[in-house]
């Protein structure tokens, strides 16, 4: 109802921030954009006695790119900053697609991609592509830093592998592998700038004229973002065509575990998972330089954009 009282710190270094979190014994929360944290504090869904603001720590506000190690995104980088980054625009188009469809302009101007990840929401729009990209999360605690594959981070709705005294400091995204294409597709619940009823991040690698490795990640259709492993295996080594993608979409849908809620029914979510997977694969294949026989052009209304 009303925002509870809390102590507020704005440290200047990662070490200070980690010390503050550790010192609070689980009663502190890192605070970046606040677009999810503050409403949750207000409604009582999250309790915190201390907020540790990350926005004054220069390293956490930086985006870096290196051809060998890839992209590093600091924990206080706003979603809008990512969209403005020429490196992201040029080398990570599916991330741009995902981030540009996350929330609204106003939220993107405050909210961070690290916050989107740490919420542990199964429908976070920036997550499926990060998983398909095999991103790693750098987690810092008084015990030092550990690197965790993002696929191992999500434990359940709102639950992550983050320890109470740990801080997500950076997201590492490997450099774009050659001959691969990534894509993102989302079905907003109802309005155009809406939370996702289903979202999808995919990767297609080209091996000669056929599909090599493929990755399919689905959001909002299970307690955590899911990999559709059987569908991925079906693609490996296959020649891409409309009929195959239909089958792969159905296969991926069968691997989901959606629920009924206000935003969509489970049955609709499952059906839409198949559609989005199919559409996203067409885009990813095109980006990888692979032709898809007899494929309909990717639909625009649901966001499987080029």
């Amino acid at each position: 109802m009303s925002l509870p009282h809390f102590e507020y710190f704005a440290p200047r270094t990662i070490e200070e921030a980690v010390a503050l979190l550790a010192g609070a014994g689980g009663r502190a929360r890192p605070f970046a954009g606040g677009t999810d944290l503050l409403p949750r504090l207000q409604s009582g869904l999250v309790r915190a006695e201390t907020l540790v603001d990350l926005k004054r720590i220069p390293e956490l506000c930086a985006i870096g790119f290196d051809p060998a190690s890839g992209l590093t995104i600091g924990a206080a980088v706003r979603l809008a900053d990512l969209l403005d980054s020429p490196d992201v625009q040029r080398r990570y188009p599916a991330m741009t697609d995902a981030v540009s469809q996350t929330a609204t302009v106003q939220i993107r101007n405050m909210g961070t991609i690290a916050g989107n990840v740490c919420n542990g929401s199964p429908c976070a729009d920036s997550v499926p592509v990060l998983i398909a990209r095999l991103a790693h999360l750098a987690l810092m605690s008084p015990r030092g830093e550990r690197l965790l594959p993002i696929g191992d981070f999500f434990k359940g709705p709102g639950e992550t592998a983050l320890e109470p005294d740990e801080l997500l400091v950076r997201i590492h995204v490997p450099p774009p592998p050659p001959y691969t294409g990534f894509a993102f597709a989302k079905l907003p619940a109802r309005t155009a700038s809406d939370i996702s009823a289903v979202n999808v991040g995919v990767m297609v690698a080209r091996q000669g004229g056929v599909c090599g490795e493929a990755r399919i990640v689905l959001g909002a259709v299970g307690p955590v973002p899911l990999r559709a492993h059987q569908a991925e295996l079906r693609l490996a080594g296959a020649t891409l065509g409309a009929r195959l993608l239909e089958e792969v979409g159905r296969l991926a849908a069968s691997e989901t575990r959606p629920i009924d809620d206000l935003r969509a029914s489970a049955a609709y979510r499952r059906d839409m998972a198949a559609v989005l997977v199919r559409r996203a694969l067409v885009v990813a294949a095109t980006r990888a330089g692979l032709a898809v026989a007899d494929a309909a052009p990717a639909g625009d209304a649901t966001g499987a954009s080029e």
Partner: peptide, 10 residues
């Protein structure tokens, strides 16, 4: 969040 009013994009 869950009462859906059409926005500018709609």
């Amino acid at each position: 969040l869950d009462y859906k009013i059409p926005g500018a994009l709609d």
